[in-house]
């Protein structure tokens, strides 16, 4: 590499670093997450208790601790593209143990919300949509109908978990009886429907997420 090319490369790298540190988009993203997850997130000391406590940490590409840092630095793209946010089981261990009383789980939830606000659909949105509609209509879940509809709407995803589902049937974890497939309703489905109406479309909107926030 010639000396000039090397210098140019360094200059470009420097420029990239400069643009990465302060963007209006990043700032907006940071403020949005703080609005959803709480201003306390700013007091994070990056101790790693959250990521070390997380039961799905070994599956994650970005530790939760790092997600918090990415948020504070306004690194929107890297934070939203992380697989970790979809692996959170909402067990709240991070939130219970955080020595600063930050709610790392709320940060993850905020990232999910923002991801969908941007018009993206997560891989699970098909499943969640079916799940939500069943609750709305029957007040309960029929595993039979759920599996069937999931298989029709998202065959490739459903195929991945079919073997696992098959294992559950003989153990009685999944009810395949015909009765259950008739769509038995609970009492007061009208009220459930009203709850869904209040929360918005298919129970899967910004508002649901926020309600979830508030109750954590």
């Amino acid at each position: 590499m010639t000396q000039i090319a090397k210098t140019e490369n360094m200059a470009m790298a420097a420029k990239e670093i400069a643009t990465r540190t302060r963007t209006a988009e990043g700032e907006k993203f940071r403020e949005r997450v703080l609005a959803l997850a709480g201003e306390d997130v700013k007091t994070c000391i990056q101790c790693g208790t959250c990521s070390a406590s997380c039961p799905t940490a070994h599956l994650m590409d970005t530790p939760i601790r790092k997600l918090v840092k990415l948020v504070l630095e306004g690194e929107k793209e890297e934070a939203l593209s992380s697989r970790s946010i979809w692996l959170c089981t909402s067990c709240l261990l991070c939130t219970v143990r955080c020595p600063r009383n930050i709610r790392p789980m709320a940060v993850v939830a905020a990232l999910k919300t923002i991801y969908e606000e941007e018009g993206n659909r997560c891989k699970d949105s098909v499943f969640e949509g079916i799940f939500g509609r069943q609750i709305r209509d029957y007040g309960r879940i029929s595993e039979f109908l759920l599996s069937a509809e999931y298989m029709i709407r998202s065959p490739s995803s459903a195929a991945q978990i079919m073997a696992f589902g098959a294992e559950l049937v003989p153990k009685g974890k999944i009810e395949l009886a015909f009765d259950a497939a008739k769509g038995e309703r609970i009492e007061g489905t009208e009220e459930v429907r009203r709850i869904f109406e209040l929360l918005g479309d298919e129970g899967k909107s910004k508002k649901t997420e926020e309600t979830e926030e508030a109750t954590i």
Partner: peptide, 22 residues
């Protein structure tokens, strides 16, 4: 090691310290 320990477990009679190397 920079990282606050999340828990100490006993696995087969030995102590294990769980943490994220931050």
């Amino acid at each position: 090691i920079r990282g606050r320990v999340s828990e100490v477990e006993e696995v087969d009679g030995a102590l294990r310290v769980n943490y994220e190397d931050t």
